[in-house]
Simulated assay, not measured.
Amino acid sequence: MSQSSESLVPDLTDPEVYEAAVRELVASTAPGLFAVVQEREESPDAYVAAWGVEFADRRVAAFTAGLGGWLSLADTDRLLSALDVPGVRTRIVPVA
Rank of each mutant, 00 (worst) to 15 (best):
T64R: 15
F34C: 09
S7Y: 09
D75C: 07
A62D: 03
V93C: 07
Q3V: 08
P15V: 05
E39V: 11
A49E: 04
S81D: 15
P94V: 00
V93F: 03
F63I: 12
A74I: 11
E54I: 01
V36C: 07
L73N: 04
L33F: 06
P15Y: 05
G68D: 01
F63T: 13
R23M: 14
A46V: 15
L80H: 04
A65M: 09
S2C: 11
V88I: 15
A20S: 12
L80Q: 01
L12C: 02
R23H: 12
V37E: 02
A56M: 11
R58H: 14
S28W: 05
T76A: 08
V9K: 14
A50N: 08
E16V: 13
Y18G: 09
D75L: 01
E42G: 03
P15M: 04
A82G: 02
P31R: 06
V26C: 12
G68L: 02
L67R: 14
D14F: 04
A35Q: 12
D77R: 09
E6Q: 11
G69Y: 13
G68H: 01
P10T: 04
T29S: 15
I92C: 07
D45I: 07
G66T: 09
G32I: 08
F34V: 10
P86L: 07
L12R: 02
R78Y: 07
A30Q: 09
I92Q: 04
A30H: 11
S5C: 14
D57E: 10
L25Y: 14
Q38T: 14
R59I: 02
A21D: 13
V9S: 07
V22G: 00
E42Q: 08
V60Q: 00
A50Y: 05
E6I: 10
A61K: 04
R23L: 13
P31I: 05
A35P: 01
V22Y: 07
A50P: 03
S4E: 14
V37R: 02
S81N: 11
E24Y: 05
Q38N: 12
F55P: 01
S72H: 09
A20F: 03
V9T: 13
A20G: 05
S72T: 10
V48L: 01
A35R: 14
E41L: 13
V26I: 15
L67M: 11
E42N: 08
P44A: 10
R40W: 05
V95Q: 07
M1N: 11
L8T: 11
V93N: 04
A49V: 00
